[in-house]
Nucleic acid binder design. Structure first.
Lengths: 151, 151
DNA sequence: TATTGTTATACTCTATAACTATA
DNA sequence: TATAGTTATAGAGTATAACAATA
């Protein structure tokens, strides 16, 4: 049985400034994602919101802004880009007139599917090239990152 | 079908849109990092460059722009913010007059240390709260992310 | 008054295009 | 000509402050 990857390097070296390594790697990977933007398409923040509406259905501005940890004012501008482009629409909540529900249009649903496949193609290629163990480590770390982002 | 370590968990479940999960988690964690910016300090891109200069010594514009995968023009503006604020200085390369070496000032070195500790404190807290296995998965994934970002 | 959302304004980050200076 | 770097301009993304509408 092969030794676990953690034993191939001194633990101290791995964990020395693990936070700094995580921050650096996440930042560079995020910028790499962003650089894959197809010409003329939505930016990464707008596309992330569109994808969320596509997957999870109509949501209020507050729900969207809390999920992405941006201010309500910032999210308002992001959804403005979506509605201006015809990918989403506003609906007043009939039970609470202060709330606005955002939903995808047919064009928005179509774009959400197409854009994701196009933008993630290079990432999927690289993940496929990894070992099953590497993918398992990434899956585990991804879940942890997501919960850390929520904390 | 081959036998391997992934038999412990269903491969299909692990790999179902792993790319999408990675993109989403990285994006949200990146925004979480960014939201921790202390008042009046540098932005995340500028601080990342300052940290790099602090750790690795003087570098040219091209080296910096390739490491962060941004255009030379973008990096030029980032270092402009650093030099304007007095955290870095320009030096002509004596051996090749076209090149410019950027280095930290004393103020830059001081800020690099203080800002990192301040900005990563909450992340370090969360990493410490994890199991050693979780941290190992994160360390492994972080190295993979870094190499994917370079590819 | 409290909550929900918007608009106004400004800053960071990034890109492309056009430019200067050096090799 | 080729390489290294800068400046001009534009757009996405974000924040705070000030505002309006509804509960």
């Amino acid at each position: 049985m092969e030794k676990d990857a953690t034993e191939e390097q001194p633990v101290e070296a791995q964990e020395a400034d693990l936070g700094g390594l995580v921050r650096s790697a996440v930042g560079r990977l995020y910028r790499r994602f962003r650089s894959e933007r197809p010409e003329g398409s939505l930016g990464d923040a707008a596309l992330a919101v569109l994808t969320r509406l596509h997957k999870h259905g109509p949501q209020t501005l507050t729900e969207l802004s809390e999920h992405d940890r941006v201010s309500p004012a910032s999210m308002s501008q992001i959804v403005n880009r979506l509605t201006s482009a015809g990918y989403a629409v506003r609906t007043r909540d009939p039970e609470d007139g202060r709330k606005v529900l955002f939903s995808t249009t047919a064009e928005g649903d179509e774009l959400a599917g197409a854009a994701r496949a196009q933008r993630n193609a290079w990432l999927d290629d690289r993940l496929r090239a990894l070992s099953a163990e590497d993918r398992a480590a990434i899956a585990r770390a991804t879940a942890l990152f997501s919960s850390i982002a929520d904390s």
